[in-house]
Design a protein around this nucleic acid. Structure first.
Length: 597
RNA sequence: GCCGACGUAGCUCAAUCGGCAGAGCAGCCGCUUUGUAAGUGGCAGGUUAUGGGUUCAAGUCCCAUCGUCGGCUCCA
């Protein structure tokens, strides 16, 4: 739903109004004046409200609050708007320090009551329902009667900084959801449950793809065979495509001397995200948080002519970054990960075409994995923290924008969101719970070529500064496979499935025939297993379904006599019996499909 | 890092008020030879995350550490 439509919708008003009712209920849970209320906007799929309370809220509190809300909602309390002066508002909210701060902001102008910047001069208004008054721009439903009590549910309590600033007090945030009717609420809760089934952490365990261990360390992923084969296949496909698209591969070490990271500026700008120094022979080394300095040193090892450019150097480079403990998340946000990194060195003239190439290559790769939907962002310069000449920035930003438009991508502008060293395009995917994860990034760098004094000899015989583009298409193997697990809900397409087919003999009599057929498939490169346990077929099918194996090949006496296999797909669909050769043809065709996009 | 919740067998979970650590699945050993989502009997499996404390007695209460989850902040 487009944001504008949502903000004008009835549902938006319902959620906004429900947030007020929740704040009222929370206020009533505490002695007068002890509950300080902050802000409570509608969000996608619900609303929240932030409070500063004398004690932490418990799940039991949520039930009490919900019950109180139902009482208020089943009565007919009008939402009444009134505009007033800052002076009068301060009087009304005299025991509410957070509201006082909001009123100050509104009076100064330039921000709305949520602290978001706005163009127009804000009008200060309050909304009152029952005995609860809140500073609010609205809009609201006419009356609490317009909200269905059975379509409201409080979900959880979380911490949130006042005004999103980690130097400000930590408040308690209650998340809730509200819908037009009970059926919609239940649909939503059902969708949430479904989404949780797709969580890569859950599937990672069920499908035995990866693990982590406190003894190894937080945010360090152990790729088990079933996960490693998926990664291997993904890498193999990508690497072949890189070679076919004008890239060369390089390798670089995992550590580098302190002086390297001083020159690159990482020790100045990035040290808090780096693992601490390793000292040996009175020399300090650091684990690499990025691959760029190494690729740059390789560039510097030779004298380059304009005829050599562009150079496209790729590396599946494993980097280590200290991520704060609270941000770690399954495979999606980790401390050690392998980027499908590349650096492109080109002349200024080549730059627009290179950007185009990279973006198209990126889209090609993602489509090869069946990924069609993502959110594209163009991040532009923050004048307060950036290196490089403005006209260089303008050229680069124009090139990125032009490439996005030529590729016919919808994108959002993230103004001032660029890194200090250059503008960028990011592609983000959403996970099962609609959280965004950045995968692809195409970044300009006006900084490192300067710092390392990179040059090439131009047609004119003079030294010129090359342009440098950092890019990662999958982002990191950890995050990408994590996203992919959720994208497919664990049911990987045939080419990526760890086990592509399982042979299911109905009786032990059929095992020799089945082994023979399996051998033929294996020789043809199919990853096949034989389930020769003395279990019933039904149990074997159940296990294969749980492992989301694409092909179940049932063989009983009938098939054996006819020289066929009876395939069942994981969708439950049963195909007509096929000979091994016909099955192989079918599977091989299906395996290659992803490359023909 | 911050706020909150949580941590019991490989997995999913029980264990009343602080009073004998238990089940299903998975595993192993049998029996069963099966026709499209769980055949059946037995065996084994535990320093209740780790370390301290309170108590006659701790999975349960307290403290610390580690880890996980939900958010926030961050994400060159």
């Amino acid at each position: 739903m487009a944001k504008e439509n949502y903000q004008d919708s009835h549902l938006y008003k319902i959620r906004h109004s429900t947030a007020h009712v929740m704040a009222q209920a929370v206020r009533d849970l505490f002695p007068e004046g002890e509950a300080k209320i902050a802000i409570g906007p509608p969000i996608d799929n619900g609303f929240y409200y932030d409070f500063d309370l004398p004690r932490p809220l418990t799940p039991e509190d949520l039930e009490v609050i919900e019950e109180k809300m139902r009482q208020v909602l089943s009565a007919d309390h009008q939402f009444i708007r009134r505009e007033l002066s800052a002076e009068e508002a301060r009087e009304i909210f005299q025991d509410q320090p957070y509201k006082q701060e909001l009123i100050d902001g509104l009076e100064e102008g330039g921000v709305d009551e949520y602290g978001e910047p706005i163009e127009e001069t804000p009008v200060i208004s309050i909304y009152k329902h029952d005995d609860f008054v809140d500073l609010c721009r609205g809009p609201h439903v006419e009356s609490t009667r317009k909200i269905e009590p059975d379509a409201v549910k409080l979900l959880n309590v979380a911490g949130a900084y006042w005004r999103g600033d980690e130097n400000k007090p930590m408040l308690q945030r209650i998340y809730g959801t509200a819908w037009e009717n009970q059926e919609e609420l239940e649909d939503y809760l059902h969708r949430l449950e479904e989404a949780q089934r797709r969580d890569h952490r859950k599937l990672g365990k069920e499908l035995n793809l990866y693990s982590t261990d406190p003894e190894v360390g937080s945010g360090l992923v152990l790729w088990k065979p079933q996960g490693a084969i998926i990664r291997h296949l993904a890498e193999e496909y990508c690497k072949d495509e890189h070679l076919a698209n004008g890239y060369e591969f390089v390798y670089s070490p995992h550590i580098g001397k302190k002086s390297l990271w001083e020159t690159s500026g990482h020790l100045t700008w990035y040290q808090e995200n780096m693992y601490s120094a390793i000292e040996i022979d009175e020399e300090e080394y650091f684990l690499k948080p990025m691959n760029c300095p190494f690729h740059i040193m390789m560039y510097k090892d030779d004298l380059h002519s304009y005829r050599d450019l562009p150079l496209r150097w790729a590396e599946w480079g494993t980097v280590y970054r200290y991520e704060r403990s609270g941000v770690l998340h399954g495979m999606m946000r980790v401390r050690g990960f392998t980027q499908d990194d590349a650096h492109i060195f080109c002349s200024p003239e080549q730059m627009p075409e290179e950007i185009d190439r990279v973006l198209n290559f990126c889209l090609h790769i993602l489509r090869g994995f069946g990924i069609q939907e993502f959110h594209a962002y163009l991040s532009t310069r923050d004048p307060n923290k950036s290196a490089g000449e403005q006209d260089l920035w303008d050229d680069a930003t124009d090139a990125l924008q032009a490439a996005l438009e030529r590729a016919d991508l919808n994108y959002a502008l993230d103004e001032g969101g660029a890194a200090f060293y250059g503008p960028k395009i990011d592609l983000k995917m959403i996970d099962a719970l609609e959280r965004e994860w950045q995968l692809s990034t195409i970044q300009f760098d006006f900084n490192l070529p300067e710092r390392f004094d990179l040059t090439y000899v131009g047609e004119d015989g003079a030294q010129h500064r090359p342009y440098m583009i950092h890019r990662a298409l999958l982002g990191s193997m950890e995050r990408f496979i994590g996203v992919l697990i959720e994208h497919f809900g664990g049911a990987f397409p045939l080419w990526l499935a760890p086990v592509q087919a399982v042979m299911i003999p109905i009786t032990d009599r059929n095992i020799p025939y089945v082994n023979q057929a399996a051998q033929r498939l294996r020789e043809a490169g199919i990853r096949v297993e034989v389930d020769d346990r003395s279990d019933r077929m039904g149990a074997k099918i159940r296990d294969a379904e749980k492992q989301k194996i694409p092909y179940m090949l049932v063989v009983g006496d009938r098939e054996e006599e006819a020289g066929t296999l009876a395939p069942r797909l994981r969708s439950g669909e049963q195909l007509d019996p096929l000979s091994v050769e016909d099955l192989l043809t079918r599977m091989q065709k299906e395996i290659l499909e992803h490359q023909q996009i």
